[in-house]
Write a protein that binds this DNA or RNA. Structure first.
Length: 623
RNA sequence: GACCUCGUAGCUCAGCUGGAUAGAGCAACUGCCUUCUAAGCAGUAGGUCAUAGGUUCGAAUCCUAUCGGGGUCGCCA
């Protein structure tokens, strides 16, 4: 049982005894600020209207009665309307004796699917994916620790025009190159051909695009010419810079789409959809390269999946649902045969759910996949870890599923997270300012190695132990740095700070853990409980922090946000470090005090390890 | 233009459903290794919580407006 629940129960009873039934009463207890005396604070303002005396007097009345329960409360003081309560030594001790960094069960047995990562197969993973992966993995662990039955899923976007670009470029310029022959990771190799394609396309079309801006471009295709002339007209009339840029962008796309390269690419996509053997073979080969590359990145990052979905299998799902929606009037059809839903009642607009030619769009596929997930796993909740630029998309998706009467619609949730910025600004793949995931991991490994060597910590360490240390240390720094920030918020990724090992960092928490482990290697606690000890303030502080763990764990799950766990881990490490510095453990003369501190150290280490584990961070025994 | 979101110390971030004198870390400056790992601890300095109103015993937190950053409003995914 949580210590606060015990206190709240006693306080409610006391309030009732003093002032009778208070309608809608809710006792909110807070930690006493460190500048005041006491452990917990009750704000008495809400009760003044029942006590009919001043706030100070009310607080005194309550405090007086509470302190008669000596086994729980030891002292009280009143400042203005705040009743600061001291908790008795024995309550702390008995709480401490039963404390264990255990999982909670408020989601007991609930079937939850968490979809995350969801990469495209034409490029290697980058920093943005890293935030996604770390959040997704950590959320899964957090949900599990709260008792949920979690399936971690990855929906891989393995089809579409972008894959064809890499394929076509490889076909034309690859000379049969393979990851082995080039000695490059498969995902990077495919990514390189994607870049080759883009460069070739720029070379082939840049002159035409310039001409097109001046209105001097034409093509064989009449429909395109018409559209182009219309755009030229709009361009000449446009005044705002933003508008001009937008129209120019449309013209650019038009010209590019008419190029031989893009035409060949479109042709390839058509062949793919038609099941052309040769195209499929190439597609399979290049995908297998990419998957091998992704696997290694996922492994290095320490994330994993229980279930993979592939868009090549799911993109046509959802058409049955479109049909169903048409039949029961949720969707409607336009004259060009395209299918729409009207969401203006909900403050949104009309949204296309199927193209005029019967092919599916992004949301059609998502409707199908949502249904598939439910059929496969009978999940109660379906969580999507996807960036906040897709807030609107998911709002629409969930609304559609609700309107279609899907019972699982209410369990769908978009765990939306903010973008990652660099000190130089936004990451833009076109400008080469993307931070590659593999590069980043390598760099962090090397830095942690040189720092470890600098500190002279490598003495007496086997190479294999050093390797594990550097790996885990660098991941601790990276993961903690990213997960520390509120998931919903946009964050700045400063590479130098991310690899810092001092202050509010993962390595700091890890270091605290190893110091405890070092003590426990020399002596372990003999019992699993302590009695009859006079606790001092630093010790109480650690117990108090430990007691908050289950609530923090629950909050992290409820808010789909691991950052509270990071903050908590730091608090716990700091409070223990203070104790470590102020009090001796192994050299404590009083054997029962020593025993207690050993036990306290052990429980602290367990809790640190547990919470870091939920962040996807593995501890080491020495560093 | 409409909608969403953010704005807290020089920098990066906490601050839960409103509570006391707004907290950490980094950077700067002081101390502490003959004592369980100094990747640590203790301390100094640093704030008009974007601005203006409002709600009330009480607002960084809730409401409104304004300013500023970002995002979305594709028959891309």
């Amino acid at each position: 049982m949580n210590i606060e629940t015990i206190l709240v129960k006693e306080i409610s009873q006391t309030l009732q005894q003093l002032y009778g039934e208070i309608p809608g009463m809710k006792v909110s207890l807070e930690k006493t600020k460190s500048t005041f005396e006491g452990d917990f604070t009750l704000v008495v303002f809400p009760y003044v209207r029942y006590s009919k005396v001043s706030p100070e007097e009310t607080a005194k009345q309550i405090g007086e009665v509470l302190c008669e329960i000596t086994e729980i409360f030891s002292s009280y003081n009143v400042i203005k309307g705040f009743l600061n309560l001291g908790i008795s030594n024995n309550l702390w001790l008995s709480y401490f004796n039963q404390f264990d960094a255990n999982s909670t069960n408020f989601l007991k047995g609930q079937k939850i699917m968490i979809e995350y990562s969801s990469p495209n197969t034409n490029k290697p993973l980058h920093l943005g994916h890293i935030r996604n992966n770390l959040l997704g993995y950590s959320l899964s662990q957090i949900m599990r620790a709260n008792g949920a039955d979690v399936t971690m899923a990855n929906l891989i976007n393995d089809r579409g025009i972008h894959i064809c670009k890499s394929m076509l470029a490889w076909q034309r310029f690859g000379n049969g190159e393979t990851p082995e022959s080039a000695n490059i990771k498969g995902d990077h190799l495919v990514g390189e051909y994607y870049v080759v394609f883009e460069n070739q396309l720029v070379n082939a079309t840049s002159d035409d695009i310039e001409l097109a801006y001046e209105g001097k471009w034409h093509t064989a295709d009449n429909a395109t010419n018409e559209r182009y002339q219309e755009l030229v007209k709009r361009l000449s009339e446009a005044e705002e810079d933003k508008q001009i840029a937008k129209i120019k962008g449309l013209i650019k796309d038009l010209v590019r789409n008419q190029s031989e390269l893009m035409q060949a690419c479109q042709e390839m996509l058509r062949k793919w959809e038609a099941g052309d053997e040769e195209v499929l073979k190439l597609w399979n080969t290049m995908n297998s390269w990419v998957y091998e590359g992704f696997d290694s990145t996922y492994k290095n990052l320490g994330v994993s999946f229980d279930k993979f979905y592939y868009e090549s299998n799911t993109y046509s799902l959802g058409k049955d649902i479109v049909q169903e929606g048409l039949e029961n009037g949720v969707f409607f059809k336009r004259s060009d045969n395209s299918v729409w839903i009207d969401l203006s009642d909900e403050g949104l607009d009309e949204k296309l759910v199927q193209r005029g030619d019967g092919t599916s769009v992004y949301i059609t596929q998502d409707m199908g996949t949502a249904e598939l997930k439910y059929q496969d796993f009978n999940i109660a909740r379906s969580i999507y870890v996807v960036g906040n630029e897709q807030d609107y998309h998911f709002k629409v998706l969930f609304l559609i599923m609700k309107k279609l009467g899907r019972p699982y619609a209410k369990g769908m949730y978009h765990a939306s997270y903010g973008m990652v910025d660099l000190p130089s600004g936004k990451m833009k793949s076109r400008e080469g300012t993307v931070v590659d995931a593999d590069d980043l991991l390598n760099e962090m490994y090397n830095t942690s190695k040189s720092k470890t060597e600098e500190l002279g910590k490598t003495q007496g360490m086997e190479d294999s132990e050093l390797d594990i240390l550097c790996r885990r240390l660098s991941l601790a720094a990276l993961k903690f740095f990213i997960l520390k920030v509120d998931a919903k918020k946009r964050m700045l990724f400063n590479p130098e700070e991310s690899i810092d090992f001092h202050g509010d960092t993962g390595p700091f928490a890890m270091y605290t853990y190893t110091r405890i482990k070092s003590i426990l290697r020399q002596e372990r606690p003999k019992n699993n409980k302590s009695d009859n000890i006079e606790l001092n303030a630093t010790e109480v502080e650690v117990i108090k922090t430990l007691s908050e763990y289950s609530q923090v764990l629950k909050n992290a799950a409820e808010e789909y946000n691991p950052s509270g766990l990071c903050q908590y881990t730091l608090d716990l490490a700091k409070s223990f470090n203070r104790l470590y510095n102020e009090l001796s453990i192994l050299k404590e003369a009083d054997s029962s005090k020593k025993e207690f501190r050993l036990l306290l150290a052990q429980k602290t280490a367990n809790t640190l390890s547990h919470s870091m584990g939920l962040l996807g961070i593995e501890m080491v025994e020495r560093m």
